[in-house]
Simulated scan of single mutants.
Amino acid sequence: MTQRCGFVAIVGRPNVGKSTLMNRILGQKVSITSRRPQTTRHQVMGIKTEDETQFIYVDTPGMHIQSRDRNKAINRFMNQAATQALRDIDCVVFLVDRTRWTEEDDVVLDKLTHVRAPVILAVNKVDWLKDKSTLLPWLESLQAKREFAAILPISAKHGTNVPELEAEVAQYLPEGVHYFPEDQITDRSQRFLAAELVREKVMRQLGDELPYQMTVEIEEFRDEGRIIHISALMLVERPGQKKILIGENGERIKKIGREARLEMERALGAKVMLNLWVKVKRGWSDDDRALKSLGYDLD
């Protein structure tokens, strides 16, 4: 049989379910998720090999409108990372949310104007629709937005029509040798995953209280076989944020650490000893040099 291999960018505005979709396709967590917009900050590759076909999905940060409160260096980085993922790809999955079309969906649509690869429109969270009769006329109206290769209603969370979406994508993957071993599922390291899992637990617990001026840096990742020792530094921009993150009598940081450790053990298949620290680093989210040193690097 002929081998096929290609890159598939999953794009959309913030919080439409891009990471949930990629995790569903792969059958395990590679991208972190939360109900908060802009949880994903980096391009993350998810690799799925089925027989002679290798899909290389690229989960991207949500493309958003640059406004006064969204014009920091980190916001610019996320938009650039999402746009960069559209270069040299073989197919695009453009994810939107049910029967809602927003200004930020128009931002994504505009970015796709010059993309030559086929674009599949996936309408997510259709299981949430109370009135299912609104779906068909909505899908028909979307055809006027641009010439899509296909329009599919899906549920990334429950897997509805996801196999059909994968079959649609497979048609557009070119012939070619596989770039990755068949058992590899991501290009990201265990160290990166550990940092992301800590950040996910913070986002889920403190999404409303703690703004996005928080990141995680792994200072130690030591694998001793049965036990992995991990030390993670959580950076915030103000002393008040540090206080929120630690919580009364340290209860908040203990809970974050406990949840992150359990998920790391599931993902890494070993016992994890996790130490968390919090440090104030003023202005890191609007400092290009600081961002690069913290791993926010498009290279």
Score class of each variant (00 low, 15 high):
Thr2Leu: 12
Val8Tyr: 04
Ala9Ile: 00
Ile10Gln: 02
Val11Arg: 11
Gly12Asp: 00
Gly17His: 01
Thr20Asp: 10
Arg24Gly: 04
Ile25Leu: 11
Gly27Arg: 05
Gly27Pro: 00
Ile32Asp: 05
Arg36Glu: 05
Pro37Met: 05
Pro37Ile: 04
Thr39Lys: 00
Thr39Gly: 00
Thr39Pro: 02
Asp51Gln: 14
Tyr57Asn: 01
Asp59Ala: 06
Thr60Lys: 02
Pro61Leu: 00
His64Ala: 09
His64Arg: 06
Arg68Ser: 11
Ala73Phe: 00
Ile74Cys: 03
Ile74Asp: 03
Asn75Trp: 06
Arg76Tyr: 05
Arg76Asn: 05
Met78Glu: 00
Ala81Val: 06
Leu86Pro: 08
Arg87Glu: 09
Asp88Arg: 12
Asp97Lys: 07
Asp97Val: 00
Glu103His: 10
Val108Glu: 07
Leu109Ile: 01
Ala117Leu: 03
Val119Trp: 09
Ile120Ala: 08
Lys125Met: 15
Leu129Gln: 10
Lys132Glu: 14
Ser133Met: 12
Pro137Asn: 11
Pro137Trp: 12
Trp138Asn: 04
Ser141Ala: 14
Gln143Lys: 15
Ala144Met: 13
Phe148Trp: 13
Ser155Trp: 07
Leu165Asp: 12
Glu166Ser: 13
Pro174Thr: 13
Val177Lys: 15
Ile185Arg: 06
Thr186Arg: 09
Gln190Lys: 11
Gln190Asn: 10
Arg191Tyr: 06
Ala195Met: 01
Leu197Ser: 03
Arg199Trp: 03
Glu200Ser: 02
Arg204Gly: 03
Gln205Lys: 10
Asp208Leu: 08
Pro211Leu: 06
Gln213Tyr: 01
Gln213Met: 04
Met214Trp: 01
Glu217Trp: 04
Glu217Asn: 06
Glu220Arg: 10
Arg222Val: 08
Glu224Trp: 07
Gly225Leu: 00
Ile228Thr: 14
Gln241Phe: 10
Ile246Val: 15
Glu248His: 15
Lys254Cys: 07
Gly257Arg: 12
Arg261Asn: 11
Met264Phe: 08
Gly269Lys: 08
Ala270Asn: 11
Leu274Trp: 12
Lys279Gln: 11
Lys279Thr: 06
Gly283His: 09
Trp284Gln: 08
Trp284Asp: 11
Ser285Phe: 08
Arg289Glu: 14
Lys292Ser: 09
Gly295Ala: 07
Tyr296His: 02
Tyr296Lys: 01
